[in-house]
C-alpha cells in the first residue's frame, strides 16, 4: 500500500540530490503543485522560487487565493499577470490540442524568463501519473496533451524535476494531508484552465461567461452536498458550448449559448462515472445559471457520459 510518510521522506532526500542550486516551482495553487512545492521547500528551503501565472483562464478568485496561499506557506514567490497575453495567443484557436500546446509553451517561456532573472536551472512541476499517461509517448496514444508534459516545447532549457510522477490524485491528497496543506481536498483544475472549458475560440467574453458558470455550478453543488442531497463529486464544473439556441426572456426572443454541467465520481481520473445528481438539484443549478447569465445563456444540459468513452474535461 502507498505509504505517504515514507514517500515524503524518500522524495525530500531525492530532491536534495537532484536539485543543484536554486529551483523554480510552477505553482498553480492546486493540490499537485502545492504538494510538489512543499516537498521541494523541505529539500532546498529558500532556494525555491514559486511562480504563479494568472493566465486569464483561472476560476473566480483563484489567483488571489493562490497569492495568499504562497504567503501562508512562506514561499519566496513571483506572481505573473499574463491574462491579456494568453487571450492574444489563443485568438481564433479552436483546436483543443493547439490550445493546450500554445498554453504549455507560454508557461515555459514565462518560467524560462524568470529562471534567467533568478539564475535557476531546475523547474519543479507537480506532474502526476495521468498527465504523462494521457499525453502519450512512443508506445501510448495521445489522448490529450497535458500542458506540463505534451505541451512542453522540445528545446526546453530548464531541467525538469517531477517528484509526483508515479502518483495519482488520491495518493497526492494523502501526502497533502500529512503535510497539513489546507487545500488537500480541493477539486482538480486543469493547467490550461477555462480555455479548455470553452469549445471553440477561448475569447475573453466567453471566458467571463464560463467563469461565472463554473462558480455557480461549484457553489450550487457544494450547497447540495452540505444539505445531504448528493454525494460530493470528484470534479464538477461548467462547459460553454458555442451553440446558440432560441429562448424567450420576458416575452422577448433570446438567442444565447449553451452550458453543459459536468460532474463525475472517481478516485484517480483514469475511469469516471457521471454523478447521480437529482433533478431538483439540477433544476436549481439551471435556474441560477440562466437567471444570472441573462441573454448570454438560455440552454442548460447535463453531461451523462462516463470515462471511457468520454474524458472528464471536454477538450
Amino acid at each position: 500500500m502507498f505509504n505517504a510518510e515514507k514517500f515524503i521522506e524518500k522524495t525530500v532526500s531525492n530532491l536534495k540530490k537532484e536539485i543543484k542550486g536554486k529551483a523554480l516551482i510552477a505553482f498553480s495553487g492546486g493540490v499537485d503543485s502545492a504538494v510538489a512545492a512543499a516537498l521541494a521547500e523541505k529539500a532546498i528551503g529558500d532556494q525555491l522560487v514559486a511562480v504563479h501565472v494568472d493566465t486569464g483562464y483561472m476560476r473566480k478568485g483563484d489567483s488571489e487565493n493562490v497569492k495568499k496561499m504562497m504567503e501562508k506557506l512562506g514561499l519566496n514567490f513571483r506572481f505573473i499577470d499574463a491574462g491579456s497575453d494568453y487571450y492574444d495567443s489563443l485568438k481564433n484557436i479552436e483546436d483543443p490540442e493547439k490550445k493546450r500546446k500554445i498554453i504549455g509553451k507560454k508557461f515555459i517561456q514565462i518560467f524560462e524568463k524568470v529562471a534567467g532573472e533568478e539564475n535557476v536551472e531546475c523547474l519543479v512541476q507537480g506532474t502526476i501519473a495521468p498527465d504523462w499517461i494521457e499525453s502519450g509517448d512512443g508506445l501510448r496514444d495521445t489522448i490529450k496533451s497535458h500542458h506540463n508534459v505534451g505541451g512542453l516545447p522540445e528545446n526546453m532549457k530548464l531541467k525538469l524535476v517531477e517528484p509526483l510522477r508515479d502518483l495519482y490524485k488520491d495518493e497526492v491528497r494523502k501526502v497533502a494531508r500529512l503535510l497539513g496543506l489546507h487545500i488537500s481536498e480541493r477539486q482538480p483544475f486543469p493547467g490550461p484552465g477555462l480555455a479548455i472549458r470553452i469549445i471553440g475560440a477561448a475569447t475573453k467574453e466567453r471566458t467571463e461567461i464560463v467563469r461565472e458558470a463554473c462558480d455557480i455550478v461549484e457553489k450550487e453543488i457544494e450547497d447540495a452536498v452540505k444539505k445531504g442531497k448528493m454525494e460530493k463529486p470528484w470534479q464538477y464544473f461548467a462547459v460553454l458550448i458555442p451553440v446558440k439556441t432560441v429562448g424567450v426572456h420576458g416575452d422577448k426572443r433570446a438567442y444565447g449559448y449553451t452550458i453543459a454541467i459536468r460532474a463525475v465520481q472517481s478516485i484517480d481520473a483514469m475511469t469516471c462515472s457521471y454523478s447521480d445528481i437529482s433533478h431538483s438539484v439540477l433544476d436549481n443549478i439551471s435556474t441560477k445559471l440562466t437567471n444570472t447569465l441573462g441573454d448570454k445563456i438560455n440552454r442548460i444540459v447535463y453531461d451523462v457520459t462516463n470515462k471511457p468513452p468520454g474524458t472528464v474535461e471536454w477538450e
Binding site: I133, L139, R140, D141, I143, D166, Y168, M270
Partner: peptide, 17 residues
C-alpha cells in the same frame, strides 16, 4: 509488460497496493 495502455500504470499500482 507495457503494451502502451492507458491503464498499464494502474495495473502496476493495483499490484503494488
Amino acid at each position: 509488460v507495457d503494451n502502451g495502455g492507458q491503464w498499464t500504470h494502474r495495473e502496476w499500482r493495483t499490484l503494488r497496493d
